[in-house]
Amino acid sequence: MSSNLHRERLETAAFRAGYLALLALMLLPLLVVVVTSFSGTGRLAFPPESYSLMWYVEFLDSVRWLDAFTNSIVIGVGTALVATLLGVMGAFGQEIDDGSLGSILAPLVLIPLLIPPVILGITLLMYFNEVGLRGSYASIVLAHTLWATPLVYFVMRSVFSRFDWQQLDAAQDLGAGPVQSFVHVVLPNVKHGIFVGGLLAFIISLQEFVMALFLSTPSTETIPVLAWTEIRQALDPMVSVVSTFLIVISVVGILLAVVATNLEWLSKQLS
């Protein structure tokens, strides 16, 4: 009995140690990136020979990097808006109408995730050339939306599955039309989920490289695209600075999501 208990504890401890080691191994590169961004020399080396903020100053002085930064934010926000709208509407529509169209929606939405981004990138480039969208923000936003929509859709599916649909019945029964009942009753219940879905879409767009490489022009190039061009010329700590910014944005995003989903829990703890 006690030896069993002992063994169980040992196994748990071993599992935790192994798990943490694996996690550390995966997170270590992030640490390297952040540390090297504070390098005082022009060489990308770990650990750096000296520390300074010179590459941050350089970044803030570079018009090209700042433009890329702006582009990434614009495209990210655009993607988040379009993908959230599509993902939420798709998941909502599927909940309220159990027709045959609904049953093929999930696999249909998934398709873009299964196609290699290189192929998507080339195809979209040709397609956008045809319709005259080449070089616009819209082309990259649409491409990223193809990837982000399924993620928002699946997040919302799970959010809606926890929603008490009788509330929608009650709202309509009390005279609320489709739009009113969605705004007054559904939305307040799922707004945290929508926020998380949108954030996910934003982060996906922020990081996407392959399709952006095909679709961007010098005036719309995003951070990953510019980073790639720069690395090909010179491997300096500027790349680390840019990466650090991306990491910080993603981490802040995740923290926001945690706060949003646990806001009620948090307020209950504080009250």
Partner: peptide, 21 residues
């Protein structure tokens, strides 16, 4: 006629009160 145009009103089994109001 959809529910929101009918002047009927339902009391549901689980009451379906709006929790955020």
């Amino acid at each position: 006629q959809p529910a929101y145009e009918r002047n009927t009103s339902t009391v549901f089994q689980d009451w379906a009160l709006f929790p955020h109001k």
